[in-house]
């Protein structure tokens, strides 16, 4: 994949690191909605932006809502929590505990999405940072809407090379019919760093140098 090839072990390690992050995120979501959250074992893929848009487009034809947070540190990029737009108000209702009037829900929508994304993405990114022992700074979350290809539009300032660490994660919330995805867009140097860090993680855990 575009110069970044993970070994099988690195792939395992990445999946595991992500798994920890996602578990953390799912636990956070569980607390927020007070309902069972079904979490699929994450599948991690490094794909091009276009591929990521296709993967997402294949699954979600409608407009999407994404909460995006930039992260910077040893590796930098942008993380997104993505879910179908028609789930948006449901999610808000879920995290506000069904106590708000419909008007309040609409009024709170943007804010609630932002906070939910913040909790989930922070949980995920922070755990990865802890696992890889490299601190990350995270920006304030931003909510935006659009189709699959809009979400993966390159950030002109960041100058990313168009690779996406795409995690198929289904946050499936029973009785709410909510689902979501997490994607992280990183440039090539960041992915190279990530690969290195995964190697160190493996060495530490397995007790030998990565192949």
């Amino acid at each position: 994949m575009g110069g970044i090839e993970l070994t099988e072990l690195e792939q395992d390690a990445l999946t595991e690191v992500v798994n920890i992050g996602v578990s953390r995120a799912a636990a956070a979501l569980r607390k927020m909605v007070g309902k069972q959250v079904l979490l699929s074992v994450p599948a991690v893929e490094i794909v091009t932006r276009e591929r990521a848009a296709t993967l997402l487009g294949e699954r979600e034809s409608d407009e999407l809502v994404a909460v995006r947070q930039s992260f910077a540190g040893a590796f930098s990029g942008r993380a997104m929590l993505i879910f179908p737009e028609d789930n948006s108000l449901d999610l808000v209702r879920a995290v506000t505990g069904d106590e708000l009037s419909p008007e309040e829900v609409v009024e709170m929508e943007e804010e609630a999405l932002s906070e939910t994304g913040n909790v989930i993405l922070n949980g995920c990114l922070a755990t990865m940072a802890n696992m890889l022992k490299r601190p990350l700074t995270m920006s304030i979350p931003v909510v935006f809407r659009g189709g699959g290809s809009d979400l993966f539009n390159p950030d002109p300032e960041a100058g990313e090379d168009g690779l996406v660490l795409f995690l198929y994660i289904n946050f499936t919330v029973l009785e709410r019919n909510l689902r979501g995805y997490i994607a992280m867009m990183m440039d090539m140097p960041s992915l190279a760093t990530l690969k290195d860090l995964l190697g160190q993680f493996i060495a530490e855990v397995v007790g030998e140098a990565p192949q």
Binding site: R24, L121, N122, A129, N130, L136
Partner: peptide, 8 residues
């Protein structure tokens, strides 16, 4: 915070 990094 949800940012549970050891550093924080």
């Amino acid at each position: 915070t949800a940012n549970i990094q050891d550093e924080i």
